[in-house]
C-alpha cells in the first residue's frame, strides 16, 4: 500500500519570486503567505470563505486563500497586495482608494484591492453592477462600500494602472 504524507515540498511563485518550501498538508495558503513568507498584508477575517479579507490572485483568478491549501498552490503563481505597488509608487487603483477614502480601518483593503484590480484586469471598463458583483465577496464594516465603488469607477474611467 502506498504511503501518503502529511508534509510536502512545494514550489510557489509569489509576486514574481519563487519559493521552495516544505509545508504541512493542513496549512492553508493564507497561513503559508503570512506565517512562512511573512507577507502579512493579506488578512484573515473569518477563515471560512465568507469575508474576502484573504483574497489573493492565484493563476490569474481571485481566490479566498483561507480555503486553499498551500499544497494545492504547488506550481501556482500568486499575487498578493505586497506585489501591487512598485516601491513607493502606488498603483492607480491604490491612489484612487486614498483619494476617495476607500479605506478606513484598512482591514478589508488588501483583499478589496486584489478583487478590484483583478476585475479591472479582465474588464477595464466595468459597469457599476459589474463592480458591485466583483467586490460582493469582500465585506467591509467601515466604508459602506460607496467610496470603494467610486474609487474603482474613477480608475475605470481614466484607464487602468
Amino acid at each position: 500500500m502506498k504511503e501518503y504524507t502529511k508534509e510536502l515540498n512545494i514550489t510557489v511563485k509569489v509576486n514574481g519570486r519563487e519559493y521552495h518550501e516544505s509545508v504541512p498538508a493542513n496549512m492553508t495558503l493564507l497561513q503559508f503567505l503570512r506565517n512562512k513568507l511573512l507577507l502579512t498584508g493579506t488578512k484573515e477575517g473569518c477563515g471560512i470563505g465568507e469575508c474576502g479579507a484573504c483574497t489573493v490572485v492565484m493563476n490569474g483568478k481571485t481566490v479566498t486563500s483561507c480555503l486553499v491549501l498551500a499544497a494545492e498552490a504547488d506550481g501556482a503563481e500568486i499575487r498578493t497586495i505586497e506585489g501591487e505597488a512598485k516601491g513607493e509608487k502606488l498603483t492607480a487603483l491604490q491612489e484612487s482608494f486614498i483619494k476617495y477614502h476607500g479605506e478606513q480601518c484598512g482591514f478589508c483593503t488588501p483583499g478589496m484591492i486584489m478583487s478590484a484590480q483583478n476585475l479591472l484586469d479582465r474588464n477595464p471598463k466595468p459597469t457599476r453592477e459589474e463592480i458591485v458583483e466583483a467586490i460582493s465577496g469582500n465585506l467591509c464594516r467601515c466604508t459602506g462600500y460607496e467610496p470603494i465603488i467610486k474609487a474603482i469607477e474613477a480608475v475605470a474611467e481614466k484607464g487602468n494602472r
Partner: peptide, 23 residues
C-alpha cells in the same frame, strides 16, 4: 485550524481510485 491530514494529488484516475479506497 484544520487538523493534520495527509494530501495526495494523483496524476491518473487509477491512482485516484486506489487512494480513495483507503480509510
Amino acid at each position: 485550524m484544520i487538523k493534520p491530514v495527509a494530501y495526495f494529488k494523483p496524476g491518473s484516475l487509477k491512482e485516484a481510485v486506489e487512494a480513495l479506497q483507503t480509510e
